[in-house]
């Protein structure tokens, strides 16, 4: 339960950080809040040669409205974003989904971008980013590129990030409508077994997002007043390419979708 030896690097800038990544390749990991990374190191599921600590890089600590996007820098903790006073007005889905992210104590250190980088299929922040069609800003010594959420997260704990790239920010589209969110976990704050969110896009259209049921977030668009919405949800629950683990069988995951999605949709309509 102790990590393997590694080199600890504390670069002063993003340029220095990505140079270190380029030097070590796949043998380096970015350390921000460490709330997902350090458990994996302690279990020795990961044995990197170097950790690149980016918490102190000043350029990465911004929460900024930029056009119709909310941009969050890679050093911003989850609790800092959650206590940003305008969050509920600009990104209502995040304001209600983020209290489900880990515990008060892990949100104090865990970062918004770290959760995106970790790409756990049941995590709330990647689910929210996928539902809203947000963007991930990556930087390497070769320059910057911006990926859509569904281009970035490619599977369970896997992403399109190249070995010499780091996430410098994520962008959440603002101005989406009313949102609802629920999940089931063994203990509030533990990884969700299944999480379901819904966002009202217009009076006639809603977005439903499901986390924890497949290897990445599943997002669907539905007519909100169509009479057969519930049968479409029922069909989706049976179509999901779901998985079985210690916490739940495939059947249980389908049943949780069948229970949670109608509850979230009716909350959205109320």
């Amino acid at each position: 339960m102790k990590p393997r030896s590694f080199e600890y690097l504390r670069p002063a800038s993003v340029d220095e950080a990505v140079e270190a990544l380029a030097r070590y390749g796949d043998d380096a990991r970015i350390l921000a809040g460490g709330q997902s990374l350090i458990p994996m190191l302690n279990f020795r599921l990961l044995e990197p040669l170097a950790l690149v600590d980016i918490r102190h890089i000043a350029d990465l600590s911004h929460i900024r409205l930029d056009g119709d996007m909310l941009e969050v820098g890679a050093a911003v903790t989850q609790n800092r974003l959650l206590s940003w006073p305008d969050l509920a007005r600009h990104v209502p889905l995040l304001a209600i989904a983020m209290p489900w992210v880990g515990h008060f104590q892990t949100r104090n250190r865990g970062t918004v971008c770290g959760s995106i980088a970790h790409a756990d299929p049941s995590s709330e922040i990647p689910l929210s980013l996928a539902m809203l069609g947000g963007e991930v800003v990556l930087q390497s010594p070769r320059g910057r590129r911006v990926l859509k959420a569904d281009e970035f997260q490619t599977g369970m704990l896997s992403t399109a990030r190249e070995a010499d790239e780091m996430i410098v920010a994520v962008r959440f589209p603002t101005g989406s409508g009313k949102a609802a969110f629920r999940e089931v976990a063994r203990r509030h704050g533990d990884y969700a077994i299944v999480a379901v969110g819904a966002v009202s896009l217009s009076p006639s259209e809603i977005l439903v997002g499901i986390g924890g049921a497949a290897d990445r977030p599943v997002v669907r668009r539905y007519a909100s007043n169509g009479g057969d919405l519930m049968s479409e949800i029922e069909a989706l629950a049976w179509e999901l390419e779901t998985y079985e683990d210690l916490h739940a069988s495939q059947r249980m995951r389908r049943d949780l979708v069948r229970r949670l999605a109608p509850a979230v949709i009716s909350e959205l309509r109320s």
């Binding site: 600890y8 350390l31 460490g34 709330q35 350090i38 302690n42 600590d53 609790n79 892990t106 250190r109």
Partner: peptide, 18 residues
């Protein structure tokens, strides 16, 4: 759990060198 720079956090999820 300890308080690091004013916020409660797990001390098993941080390194001394940080």
């Amino acid at each position: 759990t300890v308080i690091i720079d004013g916020v409660a956090a797990r001390s098993c999820l941080a390194f001394a060198v940080q």
